[in-house]
Computed example of a mutant assay.
Amino acid sequence: MNTPTYKAFLFDMNGTMIDDMDFHTTAWHKVVTQKLNASLSREQVKVEMYGKNSEVLARLFGEDRFTDQEAQELSVEKEKIYQAEYISHLKLLNGLDQFLAKAKEKNIKMAIATAAIMFNIDFVVDNLDIRPYFQALVSADEVDKSKPHPETFLKAAEKLGIDPKDCLVFEDAPKGVEAAQNAQMDCMVLTTMHGKEEFSAYTNIVGYVQDYTDPELEKLFTGAEA
């Protein structure tokens, strides 16, 4: 694994910090089939489930189906369903609590850079009591273009005051890895949802791990300031 010393770690959230994607799929499927009466399978919903919530709705129902206000209301309703279902299962991926603590000890800056809305970021960081680890939080509410556009990661780097080339992104999805590559950032892939073969198109990947207990991650701290 090629692991130079990085000055900042940027984390996607869903599937990268917490293993919650099945709960998002369930929530979206409930909204789509019960609230909007669409005859779509769980799998049909799952493949469109990336980017901002408004973008998901546009892909499933067309660009002009909902007003901005309607899309916002549906988005919040979906997240309330997700949070109610997931709260009793909410936990960090194995080893991430120790990994965050070590990164903080080494003075590595950290940010969450995600397509989730701030309502969900707050839900995760406050219920898990990890807000103090992060100097920046970038949500879907703050960007014009979702991943694979690099805006989310570039905005996080800007907030941290770190050059993009000195940032390492943690991602679990191909479009997120592509966003990191478009931002000129290296990427560590969490194989929580996708296999290695799904990332073969990208040249910015420095390694693959199942979770944060992988001993290869220790190399990220080599030379980091204590």
Results as ranks from 00 to 15, higher is better:
residue 21 M to S: 09
residue 45 V to Q: 02
residue 69 Q to E: 15
residue 76 V to K: 15
residue 47 V to D: 10
residue 8 A to C: 06
residue 13 M to D: 05
residue 25 T to M: 08
residue 63 E to P: 01
residue 64 D to E: 13
residue 18 I to L: 13
residue 18 I to G: 10
residue 12 D to V: 04
residue 32 V to R: 11
residue 9 F to Q: 03
residue 60 L to R: 06
residue 8 A to G: 13
residue 24 H to D: 03
residue 70 E to C: 05
residue 49 M to N: 13
residue 4 P to I: 04
residue 30 K to R: 15
residue 24 H to A: 05
residue 58 A to L: 03
residue 27 A to C: 14
residue 63 E to F: 01
residue 12 D to E: 07
residue 27 A to T: 11
residue 44 Q to M: 04
residue 29 H to F: 11
residue 4 P to F: 00
residue 65 R to V: 00
residue 32 V to L: 13
residue 29 H to G: 01
residue 18 I to T: 14
residue 45 V to R: 02
residue 56 V to D: 03
residue 36 L to P: 01
residue 42 R to M: 11
residue 57 L to M: 13
residue 9 F to Y: 10
residue 28 W to G: 01
residue 6 Y to L: 01
residue 48 E to R: 06
residue 74 L to Y: 07
residue 75 S to P: 09
residue 30 K to L: 12
residue 22 D to A: 14
residue 27 A to D: 09
residue 51 G to S: 07
residue 64 D to A: 10
residue 50 Y to F: 15
residue 47 V to N: 05
residue 4 P to A: 00
residue 16 T to Q: 07
residue 21 M to K: 11
residue 60 L to M: 05
residue 55 E to W: 09
residue 54 S to I: 12
residue 32 V to D: 09
residue 53 N to M: 08
residue 51 G to A: 07
residue 11 F to M: 12
residue 60 L to I: 08
residue 72 Q to H: 15
residue 62 G to W: 08
residue 27 A to I: 11
residue 42 R to H: 13
residue 75 S to K: 04
residue 38 A to G: 05
residue 35 K to G: 02
residue 72 Q to D: 12
residue 17 M to R: 01
residue 17 M to D: 06
residue 74 L to Q: 02
residue 60 L to W: 06
residue 22 D to W: 10
residue 15 G to M: 08
residue 70 E to T: 06
residue 58 A to G: 06
residue 58 A to D: 15
residue 43 E to S: 10
residue 76 V to S: 11
residue 71 A to P: 02
residue 42 R to Y: 12
residue 50 Y to H: 13
residue 14 N to T: 09
residue 21 M to W: 12
residue 17 M to P: 03
residue 30 K to G: 02
residue 32 V to S: 14
residue 27 A to H: 14
residue 30 K to W: 14
residue 39 S to V: 00
residue 34 Q to N: 14
residue 67 T to Y: 08
residue 73 E to S: 12
residue 52 K to A: 12
residue 61 F to W: 12
residue 48 E to T: 04
residue 5 T to N: 07
residue 16 T to C: 12
residue 44 Q to V: 00
residue 67 T to G: 08
residue 34 Q to C: 10
residue 44 Q to F: 01
residue 14 N to D: 15
residue 15 G to Q: 05
residue 19 D to N: 14
residue 50 Y to L: 04
residue 49 M to P: 00
residue 36 L to S: 08
residue 35 K to D: 12
residue 3 T to Q: 07
residue 57 L to C: 10
residue 17 M to K: 01
residue 31 V to G: 01
residue 63 E to N: 11
residue 22 D to L: 13
residue 68 D to W: 00
residue 70 E to N: 04
residue 71 A to V: 00
residue 68 D to M: 00
residue 42 R to P: 06
residue 42 R to S: 13
residue 31 V to H: 00
residue 28 W to Y: 15
residue 33 T to M: 06
residue 40 L to C: 05
residue 46 K to Y: 09
residue 5 T to L: 00
residue 13 M to E: 02
residue 54 S to Q: 13
residue 70 E to G: 02
residue 11 F to T: 09
residue 19 D to C: 11
residue 12 D to N: 06
residue 35 K to F: 05
residue 52 K to H: 14
residue 50 Y to T: 10
residue 38 A to D: 03
residue 37 N to I: 01
residue 49 M to G: 00
residue 11 F to G: 05
residue 40 L to R: 04
residue 45 V to N: 01
residue 72 Q to M: 09
residue 58 A to Q: 15
residue 66 F to E: 06
residue 25 T to W: 12
residue 42 R to I: 11
residue 3 T to G: 02
residue 59 R to C: 02
residue 71 A to K: 03
residue 76 V to F: 15
